[in-house]
């Protein structure tokens, strides 16, 4: 379990590096095209990994129920919404709103066992951890707000 926690942390680091890199690429070729490039490279890399490392399974992507293939849609919708929303509400609010949505929905999925996940009981530990996330969001919001103010005054 510790190992998977570590993996999740590392993947978060990869995600924020990716966001930083994509931001620079997006400024040059536009958001849609930069995402297309990123996803194309991702597709090719994943295919190469499948060819050499993936053991065979009973089911495949064409036999599972179609709704299980909808994951990519949510990622793209998120991207488009952020592009539209950040100029209107600022990074600080957008970040807080994103994490808030993530936490609420992940608690619901865990507690109800939606989408074929094993249900996980909502206990006091989990509630306490959500309070910590709320405190963290306040800190992140204030810090981003400061930075935005600083950026405006220097540009």
């Amino acid at each position: 379990m510790m190992l998977f926690m570590l993996l999740a942390v590392i993947s978060g680091m990869a995600l924020s590096s990716q966001a930083a890199i994509n931001g620079q690429l997006g400024a040059k070729v536009g958001v849609i095209r930069s995402s297309l490039l990123t996803f194309s490279v991702g597709t090719v890399v994943t295919l190469l990994l499948i060819f050499f490392f993936e053991p065979s399974y009973e089911a495949n992507l064409l036999t599972v129920p179609k709704w299980q293939l909808m994951g990519a849609l949510f990622g793209i919708v998120y991207m488009v919404v952020m592009v539209a929303a950040v100029p209107k509400v600022g990074v600080a609010i957008a970040t807080v709103a994103t994490v808030f949505g993530q936490m609420v929905m992940s608690l619901v999925i865990d507690t109800q066992g939606w989408l074929g996940n094993a249900p996980i009981e909502l206990n006091y530990w989990r509630l306490a951890s959500m309070i910590c996330i709320a405190c963290a969001l306040i800190c992140i919001y204030l810090s981003n707000k400061q930075q935005e103010k600083y950026n405006v005054s220097t540009s």
């Binding site: 949510f74 919404v81 957008a94 994103t98 949505g101 936490m103 609420v104 929905m105 992940s106």
Partner: peptide
């Protein structure tokens, strides 16, 4: 944006 964040958890 909140709904979009929910989408990420759905994913």
């Amino acid at each position: 944006v909140v709904f979009a964040g929910m989408g990420l958890s759905f994913e």
